[in-house]
Design a protein around this nucleic acid. Structure first.
Length: 524
RNA sequence: GGUCCUGUAGCUCAAUUGGCAGAGCAAGCGCCUCUUAAGCGUUAGGUUUUCGGUUCGAGUCCGAACAGGAUCACCA
């Protein structure tokens, strides 16, 4: 029980709450009145002030009355006078409780009943203090929600117009497990998630404006595919069926293109049963879109337009700062083939090494560890990671990928080893992945079979053959360009966060013993 | 999964060679009618993550577990 674990401070608050109720004051009342947000109240007062000034009056024509509601974030009791700040979605406003105005009994009620973190409804008149801060002179107030637990201490100091925070919550474990506390005390975290919401909205409207149709496809799938990743498995009890959580939307979205929804997109969650890192969370948000009568060159143009427009809308600029770099998202982005990039950065022309064996020798020479039976494409991937990707700071489309690691992409005409695929890189990190979609059903079937053979030694990475997807292609899919992007990654770039957990509200953490025990008792 | 680092009051952090576990904020009490990291005085607050070991004595050394972080591996 919550009460059993209270410390002295929390017990004191709990008892205050009970005492209020005893005295006939409900600490969690049902209704609340709020005429202005904090920012609206300040704006209303300032415009009244301006109007008075324009009329040459020293006093307002009539007082600006407001009823505000919010969380108490600072209290400064001064005996016969109390200052406080409340916070709501718009910001903060100062309250002034005066003995003259309220009387000794009411003032004492504020001082005694209220603690930092409590929610208060308060009404009065706006005025400006001698130090110049727009403030609510409190005439009435009431508790609207008592906080029993104590928020971490944090104080803002304004130094030369800059807000400096003092010893606020930084422990990542509490910040992510109890994100509500993090959000409550760290306004910049709230800001990050506002940017995230705006980003998703801007992506949607970009695609909507171009006649893309937003759809939702199955998360629980009998056959997974569209990426080379290990899936989570689950089980439908009544159907006695093993199911997979999707690792991509690709195969379902292309079925929809076959069905005639020739511009289609989905924003949703993918699940990959792999290691976690600063850029990987087991569930992450993906945007995929498919555009018929287009190829990867069309998609490249659309991508640079989309990302730069989203940045402009959300941040008001196309210049972002990330990892100490100033990055310019303005189109056009640099286009670089993998072959050319590797010639420049690694001094290797992959065309000189047409077999995995030949390339393997090059990697050995350069001291890059790899599995002896790795396909040629994987070896090229290792070279890219080592020499090429870290150099791609400004937005770059890295294009023309090895065929054997891209089973869903169409060949570059006349080049059997290379497919029309690109990945967008910013600050050395992959942002998106796109290709000219393979629409030849027989070729697609062969590629699945090839992949199955290539990964036969490692069951978990095996690409399952999705027969229904092949059948769909056999009904005819127009030439199509497809695109996938990690939305979390984009938000990382736009907000300057280096860890994906900073842009996911509830990132995955190992369960605690407490949670394990709760699960046990639940199933009893 | 490997390697390295970290875990001390509600929060942020100290603690000398192994020798009485401390500060600021937050909290309680007192004073204070324009404060804003309010101020002054005062009081309380600890299973040093957990379990075990070494030692006269462990926050500190050793082992294990748990959690977090960094990095590598994995990851189109």
């Amino acid at each position: 029980m919550l009460q059993d674990e209270f410390n002295d401070i929390e017990r004191n608050r709990y008892e205050k709450m009970l005492a209020l109720r005893e005295a006939g004051i409900e600490p969690y009342p049902t209704r609340v009145i709020k005429t202005h947000t904090t920012a609206e109240a300040i704006a209303a007062f300032e415009s009244a002030e301006k109007a008075a000034q324009a009329a040459g009056e020293s006093a307002l024509a009539e007082p600006v009355k407001a009823t505000l509601a919010g969380r108490l974030r600072a209290i400064r009791n001064m005996g016969k006078l109390s200052f406080a700040h409340i916070e709501d979605r718009d910001g903060k406003v100062q309250l002034l409780f005066r003995l003259d105005e309220l009387g000794a009994e009411r003032l004492a009620q504020f001082v005694n009943d209220f603690d930092l973190g409590d929610y208060i409804e308060t009404s009065g008149e706006m005025f400006r203090t001698r130090r110049g801060e727009v403030t609510l002179q409190v005439m009435n107030f009431k508790m609207i929600a008592k906080a029993l637990l104590v928020l971490p201490a944090d104080k803002d100091e304004v130094v030369n117009g800059e807000t400096v925070r003092h010893s606020t919550l930084t422990d990542p474990e509490i910040r992510f497990r109890q994100r509500y506390v993090d959000l409550a005390v760290n306004p910049e975290v709230r800001e990050t998630f506002k940017v995230r919401a705006e980003t998703v909205k801007a992506l949607r409207s970009f695609l909507d404006e171009r006649s893309f149709v937003e759809v939702e496809t199955p998360i629980l799938q009998p056959v997974y595919g569209g990426a080379a990743a290990k899936p989570f498995t689950t089980y439908h009890n009544q159907l006695k069926q093993e199911l997979f959580l999707r690792i991509s939307f690709e195969l379902y979205l292309k079925r929809l293109v076959v069905g005639g929804i020739d511009r289609v997109y989905e924003i949703g969650r993918d699940f990959r049963n792999e290691g976690v890192s600063f850029k990987h969370n087991p569930e992450f948000t993906q945007l995929e879109f498919y555009m018929a009568y287009a190829d990867y060159l069309t998609i490249m143009e659309l991508t640079e337009q989309m990302v730069s427009e989203v940045a402009q809308k959300v941040l008001g600029t196309q210049i972002i700062r990330f990892d100490g770099h100033e990055i310019d998202l303005t189109p056009p982005w640099r286009r670089l083939t993998i072959r050319q990039g590797l010639i420049e950065q690694a001094g290797v022309d992959i065309n000189d090494y047409p077999t995995a064996e030949a390339l393997s020798a090059v990697l050995k020479e350069k001291g890059i560890a790899h599995k002896p039976d790795a396909p040629r494409g994987k070896l090229i991937g290792l070279l890219m990671e080592e020499y090429l990707e870290p150099t791609l700071i400004q937005p770059t489309f890295l294009m023309d990928y090895p065929r054997d690691i891209s089973p869903l992409a169409k060949n570059v005409p006349g080049d059997p080893n290379t497919v029309e695929r690109f990945e967008g890189f910013i600050a050395g990190v992959e942002l998106c992945n796109a290709f000219t979609e393979l629409n030849d059903p027989i070729e697609q079937q062969n590629r699945f079979i090839e992949m199955g053979r290539a990964y036969a030694s490692d069951d978990e990475e095996r690409h399952p053959l999705d027969e229904d997807f092949v059948r769909a292609l056999a009904y005819g899919m127009p030439p199509t360009g497809g695109f996938g992007m990690g939305v979390d990654r984009l938000v990382m770039f736009l907000t300057g966060n280096h860890n994906i957990r900073e842009v996911i509200l509830f990132p995955h953490l190992r369960s605690t013993r407490e949670e394990d025990e709760e699960t046990k008792t639940d199933t009893k």
